[in-house]
Amino acid sequence: MSRLSYSLRALWMGVFNRRAFNKLRWKFGLEPLHYWSEWPLKGGIAAKWQDSEQCTSRVLVGVFGDQDHVLEATRECREAGFMIHDVYVPYAVHGLDEAMGLRRSRLTWVTFIMGALAGAFALFGQYYTQAIDWPINVGGKDPWHIHAYVPVTFEFVVLIGGLSTMLALFIRSKLYPGKKAKLCVEGTTDDKFALALAQRCTGFDHERARALFAKHHVERVMDLGDTP
């Protein structure tokens, strides 16, 4: 008994050796971990998100009253080399993602992969239960004949595909029930359009930014110390 537990422990230490793991991290330029629980936060994917979205500390916000204005302002700001932190709009403004230079969302891949996995699982599950685990003569039919198993497979694909899309959307956008909304300006959920330029970059040209805003009929400009 003790031999077995010793072997298991050795195996554990070998595979999940924190020192070795941290060495590896160091090699790839990542901070060492002190606790396993830090893993998803320090470095890694989560950290990357944090880097990209949270490391800015100051934004310059222009508030617009019309979608065309914010659209043009965004496009010009980006072309002028400003780093666009985000645009806050009350509805999905057509063309804004292009104006901001956003990449196409990869949620489709989540849906596809999870749907495919769900389909495989559903087919296997039905095969297992009907033909392997306890094959029963039901109406003289063969234990396995794919016709009867298509509907459930399809429904399962849609169910899991849909649910994982939803979860991916929420996780990726960091939306969760009860999350406190950070609004940079009142009215972005009503009729205001706010363009927030990141000021983290060195040499952020306030004057030029304001001029660009003004050109596009900005209603208000705010220099915010913290990101929304």
Binding site: I136, N137, V138, G139, G140, K141
Partner: peptide, 20 residues
């Protein structure tokens, strides 16, 4: 006691099945 019993196929919970 149909060999290809229509009742068996439609039972969702396998309450009616065919014996050997």
């Amino acid at each position: 006691h149909c060999e290809n019993a229509p009742c068996e196929t439609v039972c969702p919970v396998l309450a009616t099945t065919h014996s050997s």
